Amino acid sequence: MGFKLLSKLLVYLTASIMAIASPLAFSVDSSGEYPTVSEIPVGEVRLYQIADGVWSHIATQSFDGAVYPSNGLIVRDGDELLLIDTAWGAKNTAALLAEIEKQIGLPVTRAVSTHFHDDRVGGVDVLRAAGVATYASPSTRRLAEVEGNEIPTHSLEGLSSSGDAVRFGPVELFYPGAAHSTDNLIVYVPSASVLYGGCAIYELSRTSAGNVADADLAEWPTSIERIQQHYPEAQFVIPGHGLPGGLDLLKHTTNVVKAHTNRSVVE
């Protein structure tokens, strides 16, 4: 069995187990497998329904001669939608809004960016022009300005110390501490036991640490421990890039980060 097929099978099995364990909360999309990078042309966006009122959005972007996937989250909030992270750029984010209108038909009224990198804030200006209120932590807003990236308009308070959590509509926002970046936030959907790890969490097929220019490698494993301790009931975990899975993604990420750190020390 090929690795790609095995990865998709694991996603399907995880979703099936969740649907059985929580039949009222989960209505997993039966329309197909989780979209992969090879299936999404740059400039297009796919939506994948995880649970009743919960979707991931998947886009792709060219970077350094390669094409990478990027995940975000959409959560229903009454007759409105909360968006977590842009679709990595203005063109993708405009396509995301169009796809949401086509498939869901509810307005996106608020959006949260989970850290300051372009795959999370690139497209904020498109959201703002569409009347979406954009939010991020003060740290993310400051770092985005320093980096020359787009800056969300509103500040999220109460997320300055490791372990801080605040309720934001249908989700809980959690600051686990520094990891992929010093400002990275985690998003949890309690009604569906869905954990969105953003770039602080890796997919299972990833074996290298990737972009760690703004990471705190020493603190990252401790931050992941905080996530595990705060959300032990999480059933569906979405990484910032690639295929979702279960809580095993947290341990896998820790292993990859520690291996990278150990290699760096040896070198």
Rank of each mutant, 00 (worst) to 15 (best):
Gly2Ala: 08
Gly2Tyr: 14
Leu6Glu: 06
Leu6Ser: 12
Val11Glu: 05
Val11Phe: 08
Leu13Glu: 13
Thr14Phe: 13
Ala15Val: 07
Ala15Thr: 06
Ser16Asp: 13
Met18Cys: 05
Ile20Ala: 12
Leu24Gly: 08
Phe26Glu: 08
Ser27Gln: 14
Tyr34His: 12
Val37Tyr: 09
Val37Cys: 10
Glu39Tyr: 15
Pro41Phe: 11
Val42Trp: 15
Val42Glu: 12
Arg46Ser: 12
Leu47Thr: 14
Tyr48Glu: 10
Tyr48Thr: 07
Ile50Met: 08
Gly53Tyr: 05
Ala59Pro: 03
Asp64Ser: 07
Ala66Trp: 14
Val67Tyr: 07
Asn71Gln: 07
Gly72Trp: 01
Ile74Cys: 04
Val75Thr: 09
Asp79Gly: 12
Leu81Thr: 07
Asp85Asn: 04
Ala87Arg: 00
Trp88Gly: 00
Lys91Thr: 10
Thr93Cys: 03
Thr93Pro: 01
Ala95Gln: 13
Leu97Ile: 04
Leu97Lys: 00
Glu99Ser: 14
Ile100Arg: 01
Glu101Ser: 13
Glu101Gly: 12
Gln103Lys: 12
Gly105Leu: 15
Leu106Met: 10
Pro107Ile: 08
Val108Cys: 01
Ala111Gly: 14
Thr114Pro: 01
Thr114Ser: 14
His115Leu: 01
His115Trp: 00
Asp118His: 07
Asp119Val: 02
Val121Ile: 11
Asp125His: 14
Ala130Cys: 11
Tyr135Arg: 00
Thr140His: 03
Glu147Leu: 12
Gly148Asp: 14
Pro152Lys: 03
Thr153Asn: 06
Ser155Glu: 13
Ser155Arg: 11
Ser160Phe: 14
Ser160Ala: 14
Ser160Leu: 13
Ser162Cys: 10
Arg167Ser: 08
Arg167Met: 08
Gly169Phe: 04
Leu173Lys: 01
Leu173His: 04
Tyr175Met: 09
Tyr175Asn: 05
Pro176Asp: 01
Ala178Glu: 09
Ala178Gly: 09
Ala179Trp: 04
Ala179Gln: 00
Thr182Tyr: 07
Asp183Pro: 00
Leu185Thr: 04
Leu185Met: 07
Ile186Thr: 05
Val187Tyr: 01
Val187Ile: 08
Tyr188Gln: 01
Ser191Asn: 08
Ala192Gly: 08
Ser193Met: 06
Val194Gly: 02
Gly197Pro: 12
Cys199Glu: 00
Ala200Pro: 03
Asn211Phe: 14
Val212Leu: 09
Val212His: 06
Ala215Ile: 09
Asp216Tyr: 11
Leu217Asp: 06
Ala218Ile: 06
Ala218Trp: 10
Glu219Asp: 10
Trp220Tyr: 15
Thr222Asp: 14
Ser223Thr: 07
Ile227Leu: 12
Gln228Asp: 05
His230Gly: 13
Glu233His: 09
Gln235Val: 06
Pro239Gln: 01
Gly240Tyr: 03
Gly240Ala: 04
Gly240Ser: 03
Leu243Gly: 09
Gly245Asn: 05
Gly246Met: 11
Leu247Phe: 05
Leu249Asp: 01
His252Thr: 05
His252Leu: 03
His252Asn: 15
Thr253Ala: 03
Thr253Ser: 07
Asn255Ile: 08
Asn255Ala: 12
Val257Ser: 02
Val257Gln: 03
Ala259Ser: 12
Ala259Tyr: 06
His260Ile: 15
Arg263Gln: 11
Val265Glu: 10
Val266Asp: 06
Glu267Ala: 08
